[in-house]
Design a protein around this nucleic acid. Structure first.
Lengths: 206, 206
DNA sequence: TGGCACCTCCACCTTTCGGCTGATGGCGGG
DNA sequence: CCCGCCATCAGCCGAAAGGTGGAGGTGCCA
């Protein structure tokens, strides 16, 4: 029997998961929480085999990736991320934090069941889209801007000018321009807005 | 007894709605569909009092707003939109299409029940965030770019240059620059990327 | 009929951005 | 130890974008 704890801030999703998983053999939903904090508190003096965790909780709340990090650090149960969107940053962050799987909320119920079984058995469980993202990142590392380049691009996407970015990152405008130029080359574009659009489309940032 | 038909492409959400609404008195979920097309086909020879409809369906599928338009046009049941995000454009489009309500998927179950009762009774049922958006739009019309200005800004956000935008919209660069300048003034910014960021943040486009 | 809002267009000027070339120091792998 | 990648910086030039101030046309509504 796989004992599952759920944490998601959407009541509709929680209810759906309970309902879908409740009809599966060998699976029991033993807890249901609306925040990562509540889940962690519950885990402190309860046990389960698998956690189904959303990534985004409300403003100012502990997010799923950080919660995953804490659960893994304390030797807790396996964590399966279940969220709406899959950006490269989110995926890598969650997996790096120790999540053993990453599912999207539009997952068909059959696939959800399979993923739960797999995750509880310690196997990785990734949505097809997530697998595709990871593969692309491995097969085509040339298209991947570096962390610093992404930092600059993110600020550009937030509407900052080159000089503002330079100020915020404590570098000169020349450096900002260099980083941006590199992202343009890697993304195959020739303008700041096109780079932002491309990065957004590829899920390089939310 | 309120007879409800559900259309949402997320099995988890469908299951959650059935589960939540199933336990409410005077409410019965009489149909459950994974696409707007399936819902319309079902409505052709079935009856219900209320439709709970997602806005976004998969790539290339009929979207919720257009489905709402068709249901309203044929004198069908009341439509209550239930979706994840609330951008100004989405909200106005859906309400314009004839939806009597607009809920977000993070709605607490109590509020969901209330909204369903209200919608079935013919009253409007809007999420607080949606109400706030609409109010802001009414109270502060100066901040609202015109349709044409948004068209231009949307293309800018897609990475197009002024000359590309001019070509696509069959206008001159001067006009493009004028429209953009107007959006800058209305959004309180001074650059193209800042305008895009501001528009995105305010939900002016997805 | 006279605003009023919107869309369209123009010219001139300043600022910013992008492309190019080149350079330095750090850091890790072969 | 050297090579390659990364982050940092510089200067120059042309192109793109933004700021200012206008103008004509349309459609709507009081």
């Amino acid at each position: 029997m796989i004992r599952i704890a759920i944490a998601d801030d959407h009541p509709i999703v929680r209810s759906g998961l309970v309902s879908l998983l409740g009809s599966v053999d060998d699976v029991a939903v033993v807890a249901e929480h609306g925040s990562a904090e509540a889940l962690l508190a519950w885990l402190a003096d309860n046990e389960c085999d698998l956690v189904l965790l959303d990534l985004q909780f409300g403003e100012g709340r502990l997010n799923g990736a950080e919660a995953t990090r804490r659960i893994s650090a304390s030797g807790g149960p396996a964590v399966l991320i279940l969220t709406t969107y899959a950006t490269d940053a989110d995926i890598l962050d969650a997996l790096d934090a120790g999540a053993c799987g990453y599912l999207l909320k539009d997952t068909p119920s059959a696939e959800l069941e399979r993923a739960v079984q797999a995750a509880a058995a310690g196997e990785p469980a990734l949505s097809p889209i997530v697998q595709q993202r990871l593969l692309r990142r491995i097969l085509d590392p040339a298209t991947a801007p570096t962390q610093r380049e992404l930092d600059v691009l993110r600020l550009a996407a937030a509407g900052r000018s080159n000089s503002q970015i330079a100020d915020e990152l404590y570098i000169t405008i020349a450096t900002v321009k260099t980083h941006l130029a590199h992202t343009y080359a890697k993304l195959g574009v020739t303008s700041r807005t096109a780079a932002i659009a491309a990065a957004r489309q590829r899920g390089l940032f939310v």
